[in-house]
Amino acid sequence: MSRLDINKTYKLYIGGKFPRTESGRYYTINNSSGNLIANMCLASRKDFRNAVVIARKAQNSWANATALNKGQILYRIAEILEGRKEQFILELITQGEARKVAQKEVETAIDRLVYYAGWSDKYQQLFSAVNPVSSSHFNFSNLEPVGVVSIIAPEEQSLLGLVSVIAPAIVGGNTVVVLASESKPLTSISFAEVLNSSDVPGGVVNILTGNKAELVSHMASHMDVNAIVYCGKDENELKEISELASNNVKRTIFYKKSNWENKLCESPYFIEKTQEVKTTWHPTEI
């Protein structure tokens, strides 16, 4: 007797778990021939709110983890992704990429994780300072994470783009709620499985799939989100995000990049974008 294959069920990733969307909605992903690849969860506004609550709860303990620990965790993510490289290549091929292109994207994503793991205990030295002052004080400036960051990931290069925006945000102590590529979401949930089997604490990274037009306004206006990263070139969305984010002085970070393989798409300045400067005064004498 022949048997039926057990097809993968793609769910959301919130708080270290894989729930279905609370709305029960889904949308279909088809290949270039029109054949069904998968049914993806269509995340709702409530899913996003739930993810923000969990990300906020996880943020303080993650921010207080040592730089060494954060770097080790990012390196562990890279190790697991390396071990599952062929799976991710096949998923990218299923979504329409050529094998050579897919292999390059997966390998670059792995290398990018290692790159940011290396910066974990170094970016503070680059951006912090001892400031000259005229009074009898020491004046120090150092970086602190902004807190909870909502991210609208790149539509193309769905794995590499996802990694390129998540890694610098979390290595700096932020927690994130990410809306993955709408048209090519398979690797985003598989990447969530990698995160879940690594040492990333639940709630540090939360990944949603769904309709960008439906969720972008909520991601920009939520009052407990401290920064939003938007990857895209739609001028109407850029304007809407800027206006809504101003209601709670939310930091806006816009990436209009089309090729995330470029070396200019990795830099400690990507970490600095989701940091704020804290200045401390300390008397030289007591």
Rank of each mutant, 00 (worst) to 15 (best):
G202H: 09
S221Q: 05
L160M: 07
T252P: 07
V225D: 06
N69V: 11
L12D: 06
M40H: 01
Y255F: 15
M40R: 03
K8A: 02
N196L: 02
A58W: 03
Y27V: 06
N39L: 14
A78H: 10
E243Y: 07
T187E: 07
P19D: 06
G16K: 02
K184C: 05
S246C: 06
T274D: 09
L126Y: 15
N174I: 08
E182K: 00
F18T: 04
G172T: 10
I93M: 15
K8Y: 06
S197N: 11
E276V: 11
T66C: 12
N30S: 11
L92P: 09
V177I: 09
A220N: 11
P154K: 05
Q124G: 11
E276T: 12
K250H: 11
V277S: 14
S198T: 06
S150G: 08
E144R: 13
F254N: 10
E285C: 07
V133E: 04
I54F: 03
I37C: 07
D199F: 13
T66D: 14
A153T: 00
A153N: 01
Q275A: 09
L238Q: 13
V178T: 03
V204L: 04
V165P: 05
H137D: 15
T66I: 02
A192L: 02
N248M: 05
L159W: 10
V205W: 05
N247T: 07
S136K: 09
E285L: 06
V177S: 10
F270G: 10
Y10E: 07
N7I: 14
T209I: 02
K233A: 03
C265F: 04
Q87G: 02
M223Q: 08
Q87I: 15
N236R: 15
I166D: 00
T279H: 14
E193D: 15
K212M: 06
Y27Q: 04
V130K: 13
L113K: 09
T94K: 12
E79N: 11
N64S: 10
P168W: 08
N131W: 03
Y13A: 04
S44F: 04
G172S: 15
W119R: 04
Y116H: 09
S242Q: 12
V165M: 09
S190N: 10
I286N: 14
Q59T: 06
A55Q: 07
L208E: 05
E82W: 00
A102R: 13
